[in-house]
Write a protein that binds this DNA or RNA. Structure first.
Lengths: 342, 342
DNA sequence: CCGCCATATGACAGCGCTGTCGCTTTTGTC
DNA sequence: GACAAAAGCGACAGCGCTGTCATATGGCGG
């Protein structure tokens, strides 16, 4: 533990502690010579300001909290989601001398709200970044807002108020659907995600828009339900492949379900992408690890989180436009041009 | 931001601030009546001690830092590793009023050491938990130790000094071997990992011990080399399956090699687990995503991290035995009882 | 050469908490 | 009932920093 205080630096540079404080904080009204002398003393002594003392004096915490759905509650693959968010936010924080507090919350746990409130009251972050799907749960949002802490929501879904950062899911889903159509596919199925997840609706409507844009008819039999899990993807695929007229391409509302589709296809002896193209959404790390590697939509989670961090720390208001980070289609091995008609 | 201070509580309870401090910190020498009065006031006012002020006064930070290899630098599967560690450590921290600082460091980046030093000097955590593989890199260890911060290493490898938490690879490998034997397998092959990887030797000797315990002879032809990569697993399997007397079970020293074995088996038309049982080690996320899902050994990362947190916060020294967390065998689809003799 | 203002610097009082120490009760002992 | 020991409680001085305000210094116009 560094025991060097501002007083030591002041003594060595032969100035008052206030002048050292000015130099450290880049305040004006310090003569160049003095400033250099102080900086040299800081270097010589390897002085680091005590963050607690600074926080106490300024009434600030220099902390940002990231609240996300506990990955334990999920099937494992979602850990990539968490890590991406953390990295983006960490980048914004570290560049500005802030620290990051991570707070996983299991929204199925009734104590989650209390634990969020407790964390905020205890650590007093200057802002909270709330990741989806927590970001569209009114009680969670209310808990943070009631604490008086600044809140930035990530992908809060439609009709969001307050500050948020999002990506346009509908647009991305439409782009993916168009991409599949451009490969020649006419029977493109869609596997919906968990109804609770707000983006699900967007993705579905993007799918529909994509179909429309490609001049394709919507076949209700080609839209099946899933719950975002791998298992539900497996089931959905089984259902689709059993159709008299099975699809030649399946677009799943998330990568986990797409992975499940791949599994079922393999079990059914349907080769991907030759006989069936499969596309996912999210670009979780699993997407490039499975075989064939998944064509998917990459949500710019890191960039979104970083942007949220900047908003909090730099006190940006941001217009709506600034806060929509575009998603990107990542073409890998699981999609291919349609070769023959089933 | 809660603006209620200890003074407000003291005034309301009609005691001095020192007495409130005593109650808050559970110190003795407070009469029951007084204590209750203060507690009531705390409840009424929803008072939360200011952590900065407390830190400043006590010269403590109530922070623990977790340093791990940046998942960006890795092949992606390690994000599960990160999340497990975080969760375990978070559990230990939250239970004790500590906060967790996360610090990914890319050990291939020359600035990584500096960034670790800077983080410690800036945030002054009371202890650092260093995850593998950073935990067995001398310069990283030295950087943390030089800072004077308490260090707990996770799986530091053999001949480690200082405080650490580990799991017994040999024991786990023995358990897995015994498990395979218990399924009726007599010819159990072992694919060694990269010689650089310290745990490899442990796993091999555990395999041998498992054989011995099951009363099986060690056939040198059944021990083949690998280098931890999927490709090396493929080669090893090709070699083993070409034997006049091929094994009925293969135990690979890591999951990637086991995945390679699965691939070769599939190419050779050998069905798993019917004709060949395959077991891995590590339980990387890939293990449950491939088909058939891999029977493997799970390192108790969360429990290890939690234990490390306890050691730091509770200032436990811990005897060696306490700090060895047993690994767990995860039985999935890639292993099955021996059905017939080859 | 004086006054005036902008610039540069320092003294000092907190920020909200804990540690030390001293004072006042209570409790225990014979 | 006297007296020591222990328990209960409060006053006050920091912890290391920043904000405020006072003071010192230098430059410039008249």
């Amino acid at each position: 533990m560094s025991k060097i205080t501002i007083t030591d630096v002041a003594r060595r540079a032969n100035v008052s502690i206030k002048t050292v404080s000015r130099v450290v904080n880049g305040e004006p009204n310090v003569r160049d010579g003095t400033r250099e002398r102080v900086q040299q003393a800081i270097l010589d002594l390897d002085y680091r300001p005590n963050p607690s003392a600074r926080s106490l004096a300024t009434q600030r915490s220099y902390l940002v909290a990231l609240i996300y759905d506990d990955p334990d509650a999920y099937e494992a693959p979602s850990c990539g989601y968490v890590v991406n968010l953390q990295q983006g936010l960490l980048a914004a924080c570290n560049a500005r001398g802030f620290d990051l507090l991570i707070h996983p919350a299991n929204y199925r746990d009734p104590k989650a709200l209390a634990s969020i409130g407790k964390m905020i009251a205890h650590a007093r972050p200057e802002g909270v970044v709330l990741a989806a799907p927590l970001s569209n749960m009114p009680d969670v949002v209310a808990t943070v807002e009631d604490s008086g802490t600044r809140l930035i929501r990530l992908s809060p879904g439609p009709c969001a108020t307050g500050q948020f950062v999002e990506t346009d899911d509908a647009e991305a889903a439409q782009a993916m659907t168009s991409y599949l159509a451009s490969l020649g596919h006419r029977r493109i199925a869609f596997v919906r995600g968990h109804a609770k997840h707000a983006a699900v609706q967007q993705r579905l409507s993007g799918y529909k828009a994509g179909l429309r844009a490609a001049g394709l008819d919507l076949d209700p039999a080609l839209i099946v339900d899933g719950d975002n899990s791998i298992a539900s993807g497996e089931n959905a695929a089984a259902q689709l492949l059993a159709l008299e007229q099975p699809p030649t391409a399946v677009f799943a509302a998330n990568d986990d379900m797409a992975a499940g589709i791949l599994r079922t296809a393999s079990r059914f002896g349907v080769s991907v992408p030759e006989q069936l193209s499969v596309a996912g959404f999210d670009d979780i790390s699993l997407a490039q690890q499975i075989y064939p590697a998944l064509t998917t939509v990459r949500q710019p989670l890191g960039a979104m989180a970083e942007r949220a961090g900047e908003m909090i720390i730099d006190d940006l208001q941001g217009t709506r436009g600034d806060n929509v980070i575009p998603a990107e289609i990542v073409v890998r091995e699981s999609t291919a041009p349609l070769t023959r008609q089933h």
